[in-house]
Every structure is written in C-alpha cells, then in structure tokens.
Design a protein around this nucleic acid. Structure first.
Lengths: 237, 237
DNA sequence: CCGTTTTCTTGATCTGAATCAAGTCATCAG
DNA sequence: CTGATGACTTGATTCAGATCAAGAAAACGG
C-alpha cells in the first residue's frame, strides 16, 4: 500500500478519460503533480460514508464497490471499473461522502486532492464542461439502476445482465462470468442463494451454466423474457 | 393550457433560483426570450420517457411527479416542487428522457429550449458553475432516495418522513400532511393499503393520526425507532 | 497430497409488502 | 337530502425475496 506521487507512466491512462481529455496541458500537470497513486489489496475500505471528500478517486485497475450502511444493514450501490472516477459529486460540492468504497480485488487507485479539482474547475473551461458531462452521466446511471431495481424482479435483472454481457463478448453465444457469483449477486441486489435459484430458473429460457461458463441457446427467446430496454440497460446514453 | 412567451412577472422567481442567480443579465435575457410558460391541469403528462429533451422544465407552482415504466409496471421516482428544475441532465447531455413527468395538481411550468440552455452554458461561466452544483445536488438526492429505499422498511421510511415534516413545521408536535395519503404512499414507495397499516403501527411510537392531522407525542421516542441519518434525510447536504 | 476453508447449491421456513376483496367514510352534484 | 364517486381502512391471501440450515464442490495452504 505504498503511497507515491503519481508515476508519469500513469498519465496517459488518465489523460484519455473523457473527464481530462479537454483540460489544458498546464492544468492537467497541476492535477497530476498533486496526485498520488496507491495499490490496495482486496477488501480494503477506501472511504467511509460521512467523511469529508478530500480526494477525487480514479480506478486505474481492479474494481471498487460503492456501498452504504444504515442501522446495521448494508447495501451495494454500484461497482466502479477502470478507468473511471468515483465520488465526483462529493468532491465538487465539498460535501461528505454519501457512500463508502472498498476494493473488490487488488486495485490501483489514483487520488487527486479535491481542492485541486475545484481549483482547476474554476479556471479551466474544458475541465468544467467535462465535469458537467460526467456528472450528468453519473446521474443518469443511478436513475437507470434505480429503474432496474424498482421495476424488475431479480430474475429479470439477471436475464438482462446476461444479455448485456453477451453483447460485450462479440455476440458469442458463450461467455464467462466476469466475477464470482457472490459478488454478482450483490451487484444485482440479491443474495447468493437466490442467484443460484435464478440461474436454475433461467434454464427454461435456454440459459445453461457450468461453473463460470454461460451458454445462451436462443438469444431471442431470452430477450422475449428479459425485455431489455435502452432506457435502463444501455450504459452509453 | 395556453402557450405564451414568458411574462416578465415570472422573471424574478426564476432569477432567484440558484441555477440562474449567477448568469449574466444578457444571457439570462436570452434564456427568457426563448422560454414559454404554460398552465397545466392535474394529471397531465408533460414528458414521456424516451422522448428527446427539447426543453428544460421549471416548476413555478403546483407539483410534478417523475415516474418510469417498464413492461406494464410503473414506479414513482421523485416529486418536484416549486421553484425548481427537472430533467437537467437530459437537457445537458442532449439525450432522451429517462423518466416521464406528469402534473400532480394544477401547475405552472416554464419551458426553456434545451439548445438555448446548452448555448448559454457554453459562453457563461457562472451558469456553467451553477449547472455543475445543481447536477451534483440532483445526483446526491437520488443516492439518498436509493439508500432510503434499499436500507429501510416502509415503516421506517414513513417514520423518517414524519420527523422531517415535523422539523419543517417549526417543531410543533402537531402538523398536517401536505397531501393526500395515496400520493404520500406513492412517494414513499408503498401502496395506500400499507400506508394505512403503517400509520397504525406507528401508534406504538406515539404517533396519532386524525384525518390529515399528525400528532407526535414523544419525538425522541419516534427518533429512537426511525434513526434519522443526515446522509439519507438531510436534503441540504 | 490431504485437510481446511470458502463458495456454491438446495431445501425449508419466514417476512415485508403487494394484491385482492369488502366495507366505511367523506365529499359533492343534483 | 340523497345517491354517487372517490379516498381510506381493514382483513385475507399471495408473492418475491431473505434467512436459516446443511450438504456438495471448488480453492488453497502446507
């Protein structure tokens, strides 16, 4: 968990992010000079809800779970994949985090001091514009997640998740789950037990599962059940 | 439902919105000149999810329900009160609406063409900054709503709602519900039947209800049950 | 390689909330 | 005043999903 200034080798990955692509060179260097990179083991809590937002976080590799707790209960809110930022809204508003974050696996995280982000935001038009787009994107993602959760059963969520993954894997009828089932269950807002049962139930729609391997016999058949909807399932719009 | 250019008498209300307070006079006038104001009867669908976002909407009076549908099901996502905007994210991204909107009561709505909003955003620094703050605020509101929904039972949501309302009413131990129970039920994500049962269940914590009148015998007692949390219930942070 | 630990599966049961069905109450037009 | 409409309440039933319990399979450390 060594704490270092950011190595220059990480600059390009970050520069390519939509959020930073339009920032003036000078301002970009300001941000990078103040930044740190840390490597974290799995299951490390990076931030705790209620804390003040000192850093904008960027996942460079690995993955991060955003979750919330109340009264002894816990729920997963979102998963963050490389390369993208999280807790931008808290950074901008200089307000306490609403969610906690923990690494799901070994992860490389960049930390940019929030005050630097706010300072560059004030002087760099391109950065300001990118932040707006990013925030709008984040907002719409949460809305989609909420629709998924409130309008669909867990079986329907799983079916749509599989169709989405299948789309990513060059439309092959066969693909591997990207992570262990207990984490998939958490992401889909269900228990491992029910995920297991849900996989079994999807056999009626031609979904075969062997370990982490998924085979979809008839995609159209599964689609008839899952009824995918771009206003919920398309992450790009 | 007459469609008019915006009367100048509405300018001050809009100007006072955080979103417009820092806009240069000239740009503000540009926005106002292109804007319309319409009066709508109750239960009119203002926008439909999936449509392209032609206007930024502002509720001047009345109230608006944002809801979503999928596969014949419908769920209420948020309620918008005067004076505030809605569907800002879609306007900024020039992307389709993710939610539909309908008036809950007789409402007065201002409509600013989305392209004007985007144009002024590009040239006015103050407006850009305000949009960022507003988007961050919207984002955080949704996160809080999602936490409320995922971490609490309907009884707990109602208890916290009552405590919040009680706080608004000068801390009097007695106050009126601001709207009919069926709409309250929808806002809290429950059915009218269960709201009725929930009110009954809260009697154990000293909540008395008579028509629209709520009396809380011992606020501390109710708080012990409701466990209000600023990271969920405080709309200002 | 084996034993331990964790994940995954399966079944039984429990719970929060929705739905269905009736009935009560309030409001309001005629 | 009266009948009708819609809101609210109450009880019975159903359902999705969580929880509890226990066994099977896979991963891992020595």
């Amino acid at each position: 968990m060594a704490r270092l200034g950011m190595p220059e080798s990480d600059y390009p990955d970050i520069r390519e992010l939509h959020l930073f692509s339009e920032v003036a060179d000078e301002q970009f260097m300001t941000l990078m000079r103040g930044a740190y990179v840390q490597n974290f083991p799995p299951r490390i809590e990076l931030i705790t809800e209620g804390d003040s937002s000192d850093f904008l976080h960027i996942v460079l590799s690995g993955s991060v779970d955003l979750f919330s707790t109340w009264n002894g209960r816990e729920t997963s809110m979102a998963t963050v994949w490389p390369v993208s930022t999280f807790i931008l809204a808290a950074t901008i508003k200089d307000a306490p985090y609403l969610m906690s974050a923990r690494t799901l696996e070994k992860s490389r995280i960049a930390l940019i001091p929030s005050q630097d982000v706010r300072a560059v935001f004030d002087v760099d038009q391109g950065f300001a514009r990118a932040i707006v787009t990013e925030l709008a994107q984040c907002y719409r993602s949460v809305i989609k997640a909420q629709k998924d959760l409130k309008l669909r059963t867990s079986l329907e969520r799983l079916a749509n998740y599989l169709l989405l993954q299948q789309g990513h894997s060059d439309d092959a009828a066969e693909f591997d789950l990207r992570f262990e089932k207990r984490r998939l269950a958490s992401m889909l807002g269900m228990t491992p037990e029910n995920l297991s049962r849900a996989f079994k139930a999807l056999r009626h729609y031609g979904v075969a599962i062997d370990g982490n391997r998924i085979r979809i016999a008839d995609i159209e058949d599964l689609k008839r059940f899952a009824k995918p909807d771009p206003l919920i399932d398309d992450p790009s719009t």
